[in-house]
Design a protein around this nucleic acid. Structure first.
Lengths: 342, 342
DNA sequence: AAACATTTGGAAAACGTTACCCACATCACT
DNA sequence: AGTGATGTGGGTAACGTTTTCCAAATGTTT
């Protein structure tokens, strides 16, 4: 009953069936120059009749694999999922297939995953919020077309797509100042590495906060709790801020989870939101949109970022020598129920 | 300044550098028989010195690609993410690399993705909650080792890992009956296809509900609203149930999102949970655990399911002719604040 | 009609591995 | 000494594509 696994249909079979050379079939497959319309039709029909599918492995040995690798640090982050949606949507009817490598949190895992993708001769890489050293990224980008998403700073080797975190922080501060707040505090993710201090979004948000405060003449009111972008970090940061001699009337958390932790600490201190304190987050995650929470938050258009990354990548695959580009998108503020007049 | 991209280090370079044959290097790479410890050491050193990495494309042409493909229908579903964690954890220090194909909702997209994985000569496939026809799955499994996760029913071609949804439903019913409830209603995902009716988890949950009710002598109280596994479906389903001549005192929703919709409808009807009505969900998602919601829910150990799937797959890659296995795990009930005495 | 450009099609050499042999040396028994 | 068995190492033909070439046919200009 069990047939001995019918041998794979290859390009040779197609060529024989269509009575042409394998070269001809290859040309049709790749839409390459040097095949008449008549031959194209003949070959296409043979392909359909035989149900032929090209082997990516064999292709990879000589030419392209038509595979795009995407690395993202955390599957559970909905923002990253949005970016991915944007990428796949953009690549929807291209011949490229997107493959994802899971579990890339930490520099070491990241390196491993990137190597794995290069080993598999992927045609292009999208690295979302990579933490590797810049030198390493540059090396990678030299060996395969690469787009870096969510990390500021430009490189001669790779294109990058970012959201304007400085502008995002300013949106929040402007909004709060507009509501009459002056003592606006910020909870940031603690960062020591020098390059990351310049390139990572968290650092940019803190910077944007400082700049915006200064622009409003509130330089003296700048107050930052330096913890981490986690719920616990938010809890801790808010506790610190609430213990200040003069309590802030508004807290700008660097991420939605941080805001969540802050809300917890505030409630625990017997204060109300937004009655006593306004709170704003960043990322506009599902968490923020969720009814009972209803958090004012900065929205980055992940889908658009993904689409932009995909466009840049395909473009670069076609022309590896063009100058690198930096795409910067603008965030928007989504006002909900955690912010109100001071 | 830009060097002309130094040619890739190949197995030939390694062989030359270690002064052995390429065969020897290949043997060392694959831990194959026929290489002395001394030679192994020599080769390993050469590999390290040259920074050699095998090309997966070339490997795929003759042997294995050391790549496992995972298909999952929805990235945003945290339960799926847990399964994936289990897979990657199990495969952590194996030579296999896991790659994910995103965006496989719907039979058509699913087919496309599976084909893409086969084209890339992956060594094994894990299909999570696939919707394809059984015949198609069998075909796929015949051409590449496959494990199906989250779909009941056995096959001679593929291994499967499921959670016991019938037992899960019984857990909920038992719990509610224990609290004194008798009028326990269920919101199911409407299903028409015959095979799916037997194999899909949603159908099993509804079945389990019926069986458990009957076992408790509550056959006459069985009451099902047939909508869909979405928040809107839960909202609608609860509305229907609340309009019954005799209102249920408890609602067992087939999934957490469904329960969320139900909660909304109940609140809108001016009723309280769990005062007037108890509500239980299924999946124990982050949603359920979230403080303000605190939903009683059935927990499936996704990590364990993933790990089991990975084990089965590796095993089958090693021995393609062994009989297929069906692993069935037991769910547990997590009681929270949405269920109470009738 | 000659000279040249363009189109059409194919032959054959890569690409980097692995699998299947075969050869030789060594060792343990008869 | 002869016979296997075992261990060690390598030669070489695949694997299924793409990429150079090159030749012949056809079209276009002088």
């Amino acid at each position: 009953m069990d047939k001995p696994a019918p041998r794979r249909v290859t390009i040779v079979d197609v060529a024989r069936h269509a009575q042409v050379s394998t070269t001809a079939v290859s040309k049709v497959l790749r839409d390459a120059y040097g095949a008449s319309p008549a031959m194209r039709e003949k070959v296409r029909q043979a392909i359909a009749e035989l149900g032929y599918r090209p082997s990516a492995a064999a292709r990879g040995l000589r030419g392209q694999t038509y595979t795009i690798g995407v690395m993202l640090p955390e599957l559970r982050n909905l923002f990253f999922a949005d970016i991915l949606d944007g990428i796949t949507a953009q690549l929807g009817d291209s011949p490229y297939q997107v493959l994802l490598a899971p579990g890339c949190n930490g520099e070491k895992a990241e390196a491993r995953v990137i190597d794995a993708m290069i080993d598999r001769s992927m045609d292009g890489l999208v690295l979302i919020a990579p933490v590797s050293a810049k030198k390493r990224l540059t090396e990678v980008a030299r060996s395969v077309p690469t787009v870096v998403v969510g990390r500021h700073g430009s490189s001669p080797a790779y294109d990058s797509v970012t959201d304007d975190d400085i502008a995002g922080a300013a949106l929040v501060v402007d909004h709060l100042v507009g509501l009459g707040h002056r003592r606006i505090a910020h909870i940031e993710h603690h960062e020591t590495d020098r390059v990351r201090l310049a390139e990572m979004p968290n650092a940019q948000r803190a910077d944007g906060y400082r700049q915006a405060m200064t622009a409003h003449g509130l330089h003296a009111e700048i107050d930052i709790a330096s913890t981490s972008y986690t719920q616990a970090g938010g809890y801790l940061g808010a506790q610190q801020l609430l213990a200040r001699p003069v309590r802030p009337t508004a807290i700008f958390a660097g991420a939605d989870v941080v805001a969540l932790g802050a809300l917890e600490a505030i409630a625990e201190a017997g204060l109300t939101v937004p009655g006593d304190i306004s709170v704003a987050g960043y990322d506009n995650s599902a968490l923020a949109a969720f009814g009972p929470i209803s958090l004012t938050s900065v929205d980055q258009d992940g889908r658009q970022m993904g689409a932009a990354a995909a466009r840049l990548l395909i473009d670069r695959i076609g022309n590896r020598d063009r100058r690198t580009a930096q795409v910067k998108l603008s965030p928007t503020l989504v006002v909900r129920r955690t912010t109100a007049t001071a």
